[in-house]
Simulated assay, not measured.
Amino acid sequence: MANRREIQHAVVTGFQRRVGNPILGRLPIQTLLETTGRVSGQPRITPIGGRRSGGAFWFVSEFGRRSQYIRNIEADNRVRLRIRGRWFTGTAHLMPEDDPVARLRSLPKANSTAVRVVGTDLMTVRIDLD
């Protein structure tokens, strides 16, 4: 029998994939992360929440290394990021040593609350923008 974290991950990612991401991805104000699929080599776009700070963009992944986009970053950390309708290129860095709960306190409140509620394996990510 699957444990609670596995069930929560399956339910949340299923909802995001089928409902949340298709809707959020169409909103012009939504921040989007584009990674390169580690198997397909095709662009993969994921709505994310976070905040730009100087030349970097910070966010917290709710499922850490279980997230497909995190696995894509591990294979190729060159990414694109759409912030307020404008695309930027950058290099993503996984920050497992960073305190993701503390980081969420410095990021937009609504998204941070959702990440804390549904997340099981929080991990901070920093994207250094070109």
Rank of each mutant, 00 (worst) to 15 (best):
S112N: 02
D128F: 03
P100I: 01
E74D: 14
T31M: 05
S106N: 10
A10E: 04
E6A: 00
L122R: 05
P22S: 11
D98W: 08
N77A: 12
L94V: 01
R44W: 06
T35N: 11
V79K: 02
L122T: 04
R116D: 04
M1H: 08
V118Y: 13
T89M: 09
P100V: 02
S67E: 15
D121P: 03
V117A: 15
R26Y: 05
R51I: 12
T31D: 07
G64V: 13
T120R: 11
T89H: 13
R126Y: 00
A56N: 04
N72F: 12
L129R: 03
I83A: 02
T36K: 15
E97L: 07
T113G: 05
R38W: 14
S106Y: 06
I29W: 12
T124D: 06
P96F: 01
V101C: 02
T124K: 02
F57W: 04
E62F: 09
T120F: 01
Q16N: 15
L94Q: 05
R126C: 03
R26N: 11
D76F: 13
A56S: 14
D128L: 02
D98I: 08
R86K: 04
V39F: 14
Q16A: 14
L104E: 03
R18C: 08
T31W: 03
E34N: 08
I23H: 02
L107N: 01
P108I: 07
R78N: 10
V115W: 12
D98L: 09
L94I: 00
S61G: 11
R78C: 07
D128I: 00
D99F: 08
T13A: 12
M1R: 05
P22D: 05
E74N: 11
T35Q: 10
D99S: 06
L107P: 06
T113P: 04
R103E: 10
V125R: 03
W58G: 01
R105E: 14
R51F: 09
R105M: 08
G54P: 14
P22V: 07
P96D: 05
R78I: 05
T46I: 12
A2T: 07
V117D: 14
T91W: 06
L122H: 05
S67Q: 09
T46G: 09
I73P: 11
I127V: 03
E74L: 15
R86L: 00
V101G: 02
V117L: 15
R80H: 04
R17E: 06
V79E: 06
I7N: 02
D76K: 15
L129I: 10
L129G: 04
M95K: 05
T36S: 15
N111L: 00
G25L: 08
R84Y: 03
P100G: 03
T36G: 14
A92W: 09
T13R: 13
N3K: 02
P28E: 06
Y69Q: 06
R26L: 10
Q68N: 12
R52W: 02
S67C: 13
R86F: 01
P100C: 00
R5H: 07
P28D: 07
N77V: 10
T13D: 13
P108M: 08
F57T: 02
I45A: 03
Q16M: 15
L32K: 10
P22L: 10
I45D: 03
N21M: 00
R80L: 04
V11E: 00
D130H: 13
S106P: 06
L24R: 09
L107Y: 03
F63C: 14
F57Q: 01
F59Q: 00
S53C: 09
Q42D: 15
